[in-house]
Amino acid sequence: MAKSVLVVDDSKTVRQQVSQPIKAAGYSIIEACDGTEALAQLGNNDIAMVICDVNMPGISGIELLETLRDQGMHTAVPFVMLTTEGQTTLVERAKKAGAKGWIVKPFKADLLVAAVKKLAGAP
């Protein structure tokens, strides 16, 4: 069974854009529109990796990571932040919270897939 990648973004179009090349690379996709749904999906599925927006309604992507870290939940699941933000302080905050990578939008499909392969392993 293919490994599952969780894509978290409040934009359905972005989730679709991100999912397409990753599905084409052989992975299965699970979607979440915000941090709350992401928590539920992490609890209900075997997730190999998370690609997560930062600025979302409700809790931000970094706050989601910090919550998981503080509660010791899903700490082995690699998170890559996919966002328009590039500010050093935010990147450092995500790194401190346990993120494994950061990609500034717009993403490049081949580099995104390479990042998934690197962090989640082969599909």
């Binding site: 993120a99 494994k100 990609i103 500034v104 717009p106």
Partner: peptide, 13 residues
């Protein structure tokens, strides 16, 4: 320069 990431290119930690 407070900007550290190039659009599209993953930074890995």
């Amino acid at each position: 320069d407070a900007y550290c990431a190039v659009p599209g290119e993953p930074l890995f930690f």
